[in-house]
């Protein structure tokens, strides 16, 4: 098979070499950095140890991890609550309009993240449109502090990742067999009961995919807490940034990154398990 071997090399070789050198190797370096110590002048001292991990569980950093998880969890919950009915509405539209809606939903997702986040500074600041509108309506006398707090950060995260949640849930709903739902209603279940007992459980894979995506990208976010939290909300991403560019403690920054990747892998694995189990259930039901 020398010919097909040659073909494999031409097709897979260049791309995989690139990814091996500039994705796998850099990540492996960060992994090893996590076990070393900060050098006197900010470099890396190659003394092996687990000190960084001990430090990462120091109450100070642990509380930042927990706070990041709380903000990411909140953003995930809100995105699911807003996203599910929106995905459901799109799934019930006529096929032609489905495409239009999906493109409309996904379009902002592919555009500049910084600018989308900046747009919320424009809306939420003390002289911003929302404060102006509330003042004009006579609802408030003093402008509200909407920016530089947890509310602003969660809003920014939901805003940026909602499109993907809608897409993931839509994909799941559109794969549902309409006959299953008809059967449920024909057997006398109300549409509310059908939704909670049939539709929702069958679309859990889409919900899980959307949730994991928002949570992972939120907990490791840097731009949103930086711009909308205004330095008052510190998340893991901001600490990693500081360790690399300000404190110059690369090994500790690497440790925090590895913990972030660890959380991410556990969640992706859980999601894969959920999907596999549901597929297993479905195959079992057919047999």
């Amino acid at each position: 098979m020398p010919r097909s071997l040659l073909r494999d090399w031409i097709l897979l070789g260049p791309g995989l070499t690139w990814l091996a050198l500039l994705l796998v190797a850099p990540c492996a370096i960060v992994f090893f950095f996590a076990f070393f110590e900060r050098g006197v002048y900010g470099g890396v001292d190659y003394v092996f140890g687990f000190d960084n991990f001990g430090r990462a569980f120091d109450p100070l950093y642990l509380s930042i991890f927990l706070k990041s998880a709380k903000i990411a969890g909140l953003a995930t919950l809100v995105a699911l609550l807003i996203g599910y009915p929106a995905a459901y509405a799109i799934a019930r539209a006529a096929p032609r309009r489905q495409t239009v809606f999906l493109v409309l939903v996904m379009l902002p997702f592919w555009s500049n993240y910084l600018i989308r986040t900046y747009a919320w500074i424009v809306l939420l600041n003390r002289e911003g449109l929302i404060n102006q509108a509330l003042t004009a309506l006579g609802l408030i006398n003093e402008p509200l502090s909407l920016l530089y707090n947890e509310f602003a950060v969660v809003t920014g995260l939901v805003y940026n990742y909602l499109p993907f949640v809608i897409l993931a849930i839509f994909a799941s709903i559109s794969r549902l067999n309409p006959e299953t739902l008809e059967a449920s209603e024909d057997l006398g279940a109300s549409s509310v009961r059908t939704f909670f007992r049939v539709t929702l459980p069958l679309t859990i894979p889409g919900v899980a995919a959307g949730a994991v995506f928002v949570f992972v990208l939120s907990i490791g976010n840097f731009i949103t807490p930086d711009l909308l939290g205004g330095g008052r909300i510190q998340m893991v991403g901001n600490i990693i940034y500081d360790q690399f560019l300000t404190a110059r403690d690369w090994p500790f920054g690497a440790t925090l990154s590895m913990m972030l990747i660890g959380v991410m892998m556990i969640l992706l694995f859980t999601q894969a398990m959920v999907v596999r189990r549901m597929q297993g259930d479905r195959e079992g039901a057919h047999a």
Partner: peptide, 20 residues
């Protein structure tokens, strides 16, 4: 390997490349 660049937090890929 093909999925990782899409889901890995930007900040982690950024520091990994800087370290490299």
């Amino acid at each position: 390997v093909l999925f990782a660049p899409m889901i890995i937090p930007d900040i982690v890929l950024a520091i990994a490349l800087l370290s490299f």
